[in-house]
């Protein structure tokens, strides 16, 4: 990302992700946002980062690069990792699993939440790395 306002290198562990989220929320990019917008930002970043910890780096730890930039209309986000590629080379559709009364889903919520709360979501495999970009709009999508 050209001239990000915030650039973090994050170890691929759940606790490092938690610490990074706290750092983002304390940054001037986030402190001025309305409370529910801060909640959206934290949730989307948590889902994207934890997905990398859990899946891209499932077979060994690595580094995640997070870049954020304030842009007209919203916050631009770029997340890069050097782990395994997305299965099928594309982002999951994020459709909620059918809800059967005796077999409630305990997962599969993450990409659905990301797709609900972001705009211009894209994924590319770039020279052995995964690059996910999206923006978090200033106003509600719906």
């Amino acid at each position: 990302m050209p001239q990000p306002d915030l650039r973090l290198e994050i170890d691929s562990t759940p606790l490092a992700v938690r610490a990074a989220l706290s750092q983002v929320l304390g940054h001037r990019l986030a402190t001025g946002l309305a409370p529910h917008r801060r909640g959206d930002l934290e949730l989307v970043l948590a889902e994207v980062l934890n997905n990398i910890v859990e899946h891209a780096y499932a077979q060994g730890q690595g580094t995640i690069l997070l870049e954020l930039g304030a842009r007209p209309g919203g916050l631009q986000c770029r997340v890069q990792d050097w782990g395994q590629a997305m299965p099928g080379g594309a982002l999951p559709a994020g459709q909620l699993a059918p809800r059967l009364p005796d077999d409630l889903p305990e997962g599969g919520f993450g990409w659905h939440l990301i797709r609900c709360l972001t705009r211009d979501l894209s994924y590319a495999r770039v020279g052995g790395s995964n690059v996910v970009t999206f923006s978090i709009p200033e106003t509600d999508k719906d």
Binding site: L43, A46, E47, L104, E106, F109, G110
Partner: peptide
């Protein structure tokens, strides 16, 4: 609880199960 992510939600569903 001011923050619940999809893993946390999965755990809450798991408790109900």
């Amino acid at each position: 609880v001011g923050f619940l992510d999809s893993s946390g939600l999965g755990a809450v569903v798991g408790v109900m199960k």
